[in-house]
């Protein structure tokens, strides 16, 4: 069975928010739209976004890291948000594992959002239905879009290609390989939600210099001084003895 998902590489994510606004832009005029904005030009502007990038500081100065952390719906394999929905508006697709909300069935009770430990769902106050990341289901299957571009908007936008997309059940997919090889992990594993989206951790490159590498045969300074040549005309042992 296919399980489409995103794998987010925290090792290269620079926190640029491209995935945030490209998602908004694609989806507000798409199948999952609109995505309303409240107080757009007033105090405390707020709106519906399917994807947010947060920033964390890890460690203490000077050994501190700045970790940018994008988060959208993780398309859990065991999604707690689905069974609780009384109407069946929330559902997980058999064919590709995408978790979706059918706006026509949703009564806007918000219960599913309570049941998501990740805060991945957003209630639209104006359309009065629950919204969330659709994994760009209206892009990835759209045959009017060239095949190479049939990827989520955020994935295509991401300048660092920190967002990988594919089938995590196919062991040979790019995402499965990345999870395997780079130590991909799931968020809040303690709840058994088995999120399809994975995260790849920071990986550090270090350079180790051995002191031998500093004693160099190619030291150019050698060329700058003449090799010491003793004076010819000063006394030597030759002058005082013979063997």
């Amino acid at each position: 069975m296919t399980q489409l998902a995103l794998v987010i590489d925290l090792n290269v994510c620079v926190g640029c928010h491209a995935c945030v606004t490209s998602c908004k832009e694609w989806n507000t005029s798409g199948m999952a739209g609109y995505m309303a904005d409240d107080n757009p030009y007033d105090a405390d502007p707020t709106g519906t976004f399917f994807n947010r990038v947060q920033t964390f500081e890890v460690g203490e100065y000077p050994c501190s890291e700045t970790v940018h952390f994008p988060k959208s719906c993780l398309h859990c394999e065991d999604p707690p948000c689905v069974p609780v929905c009384p109407t069946g508006a929330s559902y997980k697709r058999e064919e590709d594992g995408i978790v979706l909300v059918d706006y026509d069935k949703c009564i806007g009770c918000k219960y599913c959002s309570w049941a998501c430990p990740y805060g991945a769902r957003e209630f639209d106050e104006h359309q009065k239905v629950m919204k969330k990341c659709t994994l760009c289901v209206d892009r990835i299957y759209d045959e009017n879009i060239p095949e190479a571009e049939r990827k989520p908007a955020c994935v295509r936008a991401c300048p660092t290609s920190a967002r990988l997309y594919g089938d995590v059940h196919d062991p040979n997919s790019e995402v499965s390989i990345a999870i395997r090889e780079a130590g991909g992990y799931q968020l809040m594993p303690e709840w058994g939600t088995n999120p399809a989206n994975h995260y790849l951790p920071r990986r550090k490159t270090k350079i180790r210099i051995h002191e031998d590498e500093l004693v160099r045969s190619d030291n150019p300074l050698k060329k700058e001084t003449d090799r010491p040549v003793g004076p010819i005309d000063e006394p030597t042992l030759d002058d005082v003895t013979s063997w």
């Binding site: 405390d44 947060q54 500081e57």
Partner: peptide, 13 residues
């Protein structure tokens, strides 16, 4: 670890 920013400033759902 601390959060530096939650990604939006005017609040959200």
């Amino acid at each position: 670890m601390t959060q530096r920013s939650q990604g939006q400033m005017g609040g959200s759902y």
